[in-house]
Design a protein around this nucleic acid. Structure first.
Length: 376
RNA sequence: GUGGUUGUAGCUUAGUUGGUUAAAGCGCCAGUUUGUGGCACUGGAGACCGUGGGUUCGAAUCCCAUCUACCACC
């Protein structure tokens, strides 16, 4: 259940209540595709760095270790030991990212496993069954994330199919939640808006799925190569047609700047691999801009990654040491780098909420825009 | 001491019977990364080819000397 606390010129401050705790929004979800944050970051670490929601992936967990394994081991919460809310992505994105290995039909999609090449069929019912077995707090609808650019006619047909798939997801989830053997019988379902960069398709699709009265609504298929202005324009056109009393999730986005701009346009929830992936390659977010800790200028630098940062890494470790660990491919580097970047993102969301609470979001955004995109 | 093998980028090596600006991996320097098939990807700098002579229109490549390292024998 979503409670809107305030709505100032579009930007929303709210609370999202789940049976695993309440999420303060706007919020950023930390991506743990296979049930773990890449870079040796544990569930305890996640708590320490201010993570509210963990995100895992249906497709990847279905392939390995298998959703039935997770179910028989007590569900994803017990399996990973993460006690807070977990959102599972449906596998829809893999339709797009594993494009070379898939075949889409009305019933669903046939994939070839990237692990052993085995043929796997996934449709709305299969995705719901898997997510139910995983026992996540929130299940995402099985959609098609259309590539960009895409033809208008293809995007339209794909949208219509995604709507039909969504109806099937809802029916299947309702059925699964009524079973006594289901791990989380209060599993929530979010629908996903598509329509490529065609605003009329986006708006029509949003109106259609809003009628289905789901637990939340996502905007998918963005940040796949289109310019940021185009993405903002789509968001601006779609959010007015999203239910006010439901949480709004922009999938896979993005940079700190993207997030500020999306919050301004009424988005509540985000996820992105950027902080973790970039961290593993030494690309770090700081209160003064972006740094690449591989750079030689940090060889002797005994100051923390960010002097204004409250993360556990910046309390103890220096750039010189972390740079050395990264250059030496020590595993510890990955852990320290990822923890810093995730803390930065989680803290950015805390600052955004605070600014919203204090009625100075516009000033905060203007001030951060100056800083966050620049490289130092 | 005698015979043999070896010497090409910071490191490990490729360089066809002599033929344009000597190639690669690693390392180094820098960049990219948006619902994670990523310790990945892209680019850049870096070599008077052990040294000195010689043959040739032309030598990393052939010849001589010398130095270095290793091996075998006395």
């Amino acid at each position: 259940m979503y409670k809107l606390i305030s709505d100032k010129n579009g930007a929303r401050r709210g609370e999202f209540v789940t049976n695993r705790g309440t999420v303060q929004t706007p919020a950023f979800m930390n991506v743990a595709t296979a049930g773990a944050i890449k870079g040796a970051v544990s569930a305890e670490d996640l708590k320490e760095i201010g993570c509210q929601v963990m995100l895992s992936n249906t497709y990847h967990l279905h392939i390995r270790p298998g959703d039935e394994v997770v179910r028989d081991c007590g569900g994803l919460h017990k399996f990973t030991t993460w006690e807070g809310p977990i959102l599972t992505d449906s596998g829809g994105f893999q339709v797009f990212s594993l494009a070379a290995l898939r075949h889409i039909q009305e019933e669903g999609v046939t994939f070839h496993s990237h692990v052993d090449g085995k043929k796997i069929f996934m449709g709305p019912e299969e995705s719901m069954q898997i997510q139910s077995n995983l026992g996540s707090t929130i299940a995402m609808a099985f959609d098609e994330c259309v590539e960009n650019p895409a033809e208008y006619s293809y995007s339209k047909a794909s949208c219509e199919r995604t709507t039909r798939w969504l109806e099937r997801c809802k029916t299947k989830m309702h059925q699964l939640n009524s079973l006594e053997s289901t791990i989380n019988r209060e599993q929530m379902l979010f629908g996903i808006n598509q329509g490529c960069t065609y605003n009329d398709l986006r708006i029509n699709h949003m109106k259609e799925i809003a009628d289905l009265d789901l637990d939340g609504y996502a905007i998918g298929g963005l940040a796949v190569g289109e310019p940021a202005e185009v993405m903002y324009d789509v968001i601006e056109h779609v959010t007015p047609h999203m239910p006010q009393n439901k949480i709004r999730y922009l999938m896979g986005v993005g940079t700190p700047l993207n997030i500020l701009n999306a919050v301004e346009r009424g988005v509540d929830l985000f996820d992105c691999v950027m902080p973790s992936r970039n961290a593993r390659h030494g690309h770090l977010f700081t209160s003064k801009g972006i740094i690449n800790i591989n750079n030689k200028k940090y060889e002797y630098d005994m100051t923390p990654i960010d002097e204004n940062c409250g993360c556990p890494v910046c309390q103890r470790y220096s750039k010189a040491y972390i740079r050395h660990l990264l250059k030496s491919t020590e595993m510890l580097s990955q852990r320290l780098l990822v923890m810093h970047n995730l803390w930065f993102y989680n803290n950015l969301m805390t600052d955004i909420r605070k600014a919203l609470d204090e009625g100075r979001f516009a000033e905060f955004k203007a001030e951060q825009e100056e800083i966050l995109g620049r490289r130092i």
